[in-house]
Design a protein around this nucleic acid. Structure first.
Lengths: 196, 196
DNA sequence: AGTAAAAATGGACGGTGTCAATTTTGAGTC
DNA sequence: GACTCAAAATTGACACCGTCCATTTTTACT
């Protein structure tokens, strides 16, 4: 019967995920606990065990969802018609934006100690994002000394490092606003200059 | 009497730190717990509270120690007489080496959720390392469009990102050996090419 | 209708960090 | 050298947590 609370209400798994994401956004990774989530959804503390065998399994599902979301954002925001430089800048911009908007989600995505690194869906979701960067580089075939994979790793490292440092405040207190991606743009430009 | 276990054995704080570091190296951050450390040192579960008011305070001390260690390594391994490119490569090499040798220590250094980000000593230890990079860039004054701080952030981001990705296995399974820093060197070179 | 599997429940176990009251030790003072 | 007092270490308690278990309820299928 619609969304009334049934003993088996059928979509508890989905509700657990969404409650967990809300908790993650509000309180960070440390605030996300099985019992806490169950409490929020209004089920017994042990109910989630039927849908996620582990806390790790839950985190894995969350991270997978986050990568999928990020992938959607990339599809929306970086058109395949752009030239190389614009596309790479777009990807970086998109990543930075996502991280600043949902810092705890971004953190979780890289917390390999919370996640099942063997999980097929998570791997696929990660790989999809990474392939997006690779395909951008490949589509604009530039004859250059550096192979495409090295280029991708360089870009990936640079933006991930910059985002990580900004997220945990290791960079100076300057440019805190989302639009203040001037620094990010400048840095990416510098790298591209050496790359292309 | 020498190192026999006294009620006040005087150096328990230091012993706690070293036991914690050992535990960190062996089991990772999640394996480091107040009671576990106390057990290993052979004191009551609540003894550490006299020396560290918090688990966070303990982690802060550990991270500070790690930054100090890294700083020593930098002093040893990157001579101030080198030219710019060699110095930057040396710093990156040193960082990568430290991270691959002590992965859990490196992780802890950036786990701002485990650490008191307001702590003065930790801040100073971090700043000392960062200043080392800045001073290298400043000493070889190159007339270039990018200001020194942006250059430093770019380099810092790139190497931190690359190291982080390697540590949690997000890069392909290639080049796993410590000496296999070819990729790292290549990437840093590319960045420097655009930078200088 | 009857049965078997899935889903949700409450209770228990061992573990954690932190707090409080207590006992032991060490150093400094009369 | 006895006394004091603060620091250091002890035991115990509390509220959490993740995980397992036996039990009850619901659903789906024959």
């Amino acid at each position: 019967m619609s969304q009334s609370i049934k003993y088996h209400h059928g979509n508890l798994k989905a509700e657990l995920v969404s409650a967990a994401l809300a908790l993650l956004d509000e309180q960070g990774i440390e605030g996300v606990g099985i019992r806490q989530i169950a409490r929020r959804v209004g089920v017994a503390h042990s109910a989630p065990a039927n849908h996620f065998k582990n806390k790790q399994a839950l985190f894995t599902a969350l991270a997978t969802q986050c990568f999928a979301d990020l992938n959607c954002l990339l599809d929306e925001q970086v058109s395949p018609a752009l030239d190389l430089s614009a596309a790479v800048h777009g990807i970086c911009q998109c990543l930075l934006n996502y991280a600043l908007t949902s810092p705890h989600r971004y953190s979780l995505m890289w917390r390999k100690d919370c996640v099942d690194t063997q999980n097929a869906e998570l791997d696929a979701a990660m790989e999809t994002v990474y392939q997006k960067l690779l395909s951008v580089l490949a589509s604009h075939t530039q004859a250059k000394q550096v192979d495409i994979e090295s280029q991708a790793i360089a870009i990936w490292s640079l933006i991930h490092g910059y985002v990580s440092l900004r997220l945990d405040g290791s960079l100076g207190k300057g440019q805190d606003d989302i639009t203040g991606s001037d620094r990010s743009n400048a840095i990416v430009s510098v790298l591209l200059e050496g790359l292309l």
